[in-house]
Design a protein around this nucleic acid. Structure first.
Length: 494
RNA sequence: GGCAUCAUGGCCGAGUGGCUAGGCAGAGGUCUGCAAAACCUUCUACAGCGGUUCGAAUCCGCUUGAUGCCUCCA
């Protein structure tokens, strides 16, 4: 029996604004598309939060035994900073600044993105298509939309006719906007726009002479509109209708709204069952952003080389911090919050590691099966990782009680406890036990510390506290903490 | 200006009608040669004002404040 048959997953759908029972179109298989980064600069922590949120979704779906096809694109064709004629393409801009070929810019930051995601122990998606690799598919969609009568050409550019579309469809249903309001509230001053009305958006843009990334098309030598690539790549790899489409909250409008319009215009059906939006990571109470500079980069976090934090934090601690908040809540990035998370994370890892030394009894003093289900209940409730983590801390408390002999556990329950802790910490949350990783040649280090512990025991027996305290304090300075318990001394590496 | 979201204890952050988050920090205790760790106890809050209800942090209204989107953005 597959796990998903035993667990009822509820997912919040941005489209219906409510939690819905998750039921994939094809039983046992899930198609998920997530809008990836535009690769014209290093991804910052805010970008990472979104991708880690969906990594959690991916991991949990897989854990539930779903076969998941996870498609996350790379936007490697730049898009104009404003929809007018004077817009700038960030990739071209960056290429000028760094004196690189545009595709060199793209390559450089794609590699950075992959490296960063690997540091966060995020799983690679099943397919990672690029916009420039799907120009033909995008041109085809533009043709289809024109044939359907929802787009028009002007001077070699093609625009989506939102008003026409809205006559027999609903534009704005995802973001809760209505077209009449939008039109009446427009303070549009761009008089010489080619668009019939300001709500229209570009499907194809004719390239200006200085625009060096361009492709031939029936309308002009040009480049595709921003919203088109996601429609092309999601439907190509997942079909005209698929289960989950995710992305950052800031993409809800206009990007995802336009994706819906494009897909409905040419495929006559709504493309996505469940729309998921991950909320923003803020810094100083404001959204992290590439353009405003209000951001912190992953490497600045890992090295401690930044003005925001008092010290360096590991990728896994940063991830743990983010998962202590729900993916749909705004989360503010701060030193205090990270420090608190780091301490909590270390405590959780200590408890997990001490599972190996637990001895069993006849009966358990905690209902392990009920606890295990409560972990699933947390994740089943729209991937509520903070509740899951709270449950892991409940288990930690129990494990510590076992260690101190205040609690008991049966052999069978211990096995369930170990498996469940392992699955949720490492498989679902995708955390990494940094301390044990640091001791790759851990046996040697462990032998050395064990020796020091026994020397300290001898000193203590002889009441030579100067020596015993020196061993304890100097090890602590080196980041190794000795812990005296009833069963003897153990240690943990910070 | 329009649309939307949010406001929880010292800090971070769950929770959506009656029962409980959790982490960090603080206080007291057990343990210890002294500590640390661990354990136990404790501090018990829901922006303000009204309304609905037997009962509201949770529903409704208003006020205040903050944020996001409306232009590239995770």
């Amino acid at each position: 029996m597959k796990l998903f048959e035993q667990q009822e997953l509820q997912v919040y759908n941005s489209l219906s604004k409510s939690k819905e029972k998750f039921k994939p179109i094809h039983e046992g298989a899930v198609g998920m598309y997530v809008c990836g980064p535009t690769v014209y600069s290093n991804v910052h922590m805010g970008n990472c939060r979104t991708f880690l949120s969906f990594d959690l979704v991916f991991r949990y779906l897989k854990h539930l035994d779903y076969k998941v096809r996870y498609v996350r694109n790379i936007t490697d064709a730049g898009h104009l900073e404003n929809d007018g004629e004077s817009g700038d393409d960030p990739i071209l801009k960056k290429a000028r600044i760094e004196k690189l070929e545009p595709m060199e810019v793209v390559q450089k930051y794609t590699v950075d993105f992959h490296t960063t995601m690997a540091k966060f122990n995020a799983l690679p998606p099943s397919i990672e298509p690029t916009a420039t690799g799907h120009i033909i598919e995008q041109i085809q969609i533009v043709s289809d939309i024109i044939s359907e009568g929802y787009a028009y050409e002007k001077n070699g550019s093609v625009y989506f006719d939102v008003i026409k579309f809205n006559e027999d469809h609903t534009y704005g249903k995802l973001s809760g906007r209505n077209l009449e309001d939008m039109i009446s509230n427009t303070r549009e001053l761009t008089a010489q726009s080619e668009k019939r009305n300001p709500q229209d958006f570009a499907l194809w843009k004719k390239a200006e002479p200085q625009h060096i990334m361009h492709w031939p098309s029936p309308w002009s030598k040009g480049f595709p509109g921003w919203h088109l690539e996601c429609t092309a790549m999601s439907t190509k790899y997942l079909g005209n209708k698929f289960d989950i489409h995710g992305g950052g909250m800031d993409l809800k409008f206009p990007h995802h709204e336009c994706e819906i319009a494009q897909a409905e215009a040419c495929n006559h059906e709504s493309p996505v069952n469940v729309w998921m939006h991950a909320n923003m990571l803020t810094l100083n109470g404001k959204k992290m952003s590439k353009s405003t500079g209000n951001n912190i980069l992953p490497d600045e976090l890992f090295t401690g080389n930044n003005d925001i934090l008092s010290k360096a934090f590991s990728a896994t601690v940063a991830k743990f911090f983010m998962f202590q908040a729900h993916y749909r809540s705004i989360l503010d990035f701060s030193n205090d919050a990270l420090e608190a998370s780091e301490k909590g994370f270390n405590r959780l890892m200590d408890a997990y590691r001490s599972l190996d030394g637990i001895s069993t009894s006849e009966k358990s003093s905690m209902d392990i099966s009920a606890w295990r289900q409560s972990c699933y209940n947390a994740m089943n409730d729209d991937f509520n990782s903070p509740i899951l983590i709270a449950q892991l801390f409940e288990a930690s408390k129990f494990i510590n009680g076992l260690k101190d002999g205040n609690e008991t556990i049966s052999e069978k329950d211990l096995s369930i406890l170990k498996t469940t802790m392992h699955d949720f910490i490492f498989e679902v949350l995708g955390l990494v036990d940094v301390a044990s990783e640091n001791t790759g040649d851990g046996n040697k280090l462990e032998a050395a510390i064990t020796l020091l512990i026994s020397l300290r025991e001898k000193a203590r027996a002889n009441k030579d506290f100067a020596t015993s305290d020196q061993i304890r304090d100097q090890l602590l300075e080196a980041g190794i903490q000795l812990k005296d318990g009833k069963e003897g001394t153990t240690f943990s590496i910070q």
